[in-house]
Amino acid sequence: MAVIGTRVRAPRRPAMSDRRLALLLAAPAAALLALFVVYPFLTALLNSFADVDAASGRRTFIGIDNFVTIGSDPDLRAAFGRTVVWTVSNMVLQVCLGVLVALLLNARLRGQGLARGLVLFPYMVPAIVVALMFRYMFNDVTGLANYVLLDLGLIDAPLGWLSDPDVIMVTLVLVNVWKYTPFFVIVVLARLQTIPRDLYEAVSIDGGGRWAGLRAVTLPSILPVLLVAMLLRTIWTAYDFDIPYLLSAGGGPSGSAVTVPLAIRSLAFESGSIGQASALAVCMALLLIASAWVYLRGFNERTHV
């Protein structure tokens, strides 16, 4: 730590006040956030109440017409329904699997360190690569998935994983679960490692087995981090554009994989209805704020026990 011994230099410049220095240090980041996040966010709000000229960006305010239009559009309602199913099924599967895998990786098995590293890989794989891999594996005719399942006798006829409008959302959810379950594994595993072993010993002294230990010690310990992780992942899953779009190659056969984010982009850039696209985004934002509120209330109740 030689640096700490820095000598006093003879003519010292008058020091800037700490307050001004702090503001100066934070200013560039604040400016960037304002320009690329706050300003666009407010613009989206304004646009949702306006008819926006796609070329000039000029707004003509039309009240809540955009909301009425999107509310009465059957395609958008379908997209909305798909988003709800997509988000809920993703969360349920990812949380359950994530907790199970984290428990498994914390069970002091041999090769645990290596397995931890290997299990986290899917989370690092960029969405475009996920789409490439699984479009290849889930090809109806030549794909590995159909071949293996047919061979094992689990299905009688090849499944149209990505070509059958009734199946495609299931495929998208499965692939998304593959990619994002490791997030829950990481979060839960980190918490599990901090649980003192004597808590389990206390349970077993009281005559409790594995199940009692799980219920009395493990689950209460991981619940708070799990709720925070669920909040974050719910927001990003509901709004995820990349996996549904790339894996379904643009929305699937006859739009069978169009979720709200895909609808927002196509409304804005294909139909030029910027106002409606913004209204859709605002509706989604309100719903997510509501769900965040529910989560956080649950979080507070749990932690204040």
Partner: peptide
């Protein structure tokens, strides 16, 4: 800003 999903601000960001 961390929580705001990209698709929500995509259109105005593109305009900017």
């Amino acid at each position: 800003a961390y929580l705001v999903p990209p698709i929500l601000i995509l259109v105005p960001v593109t305009q900017v």
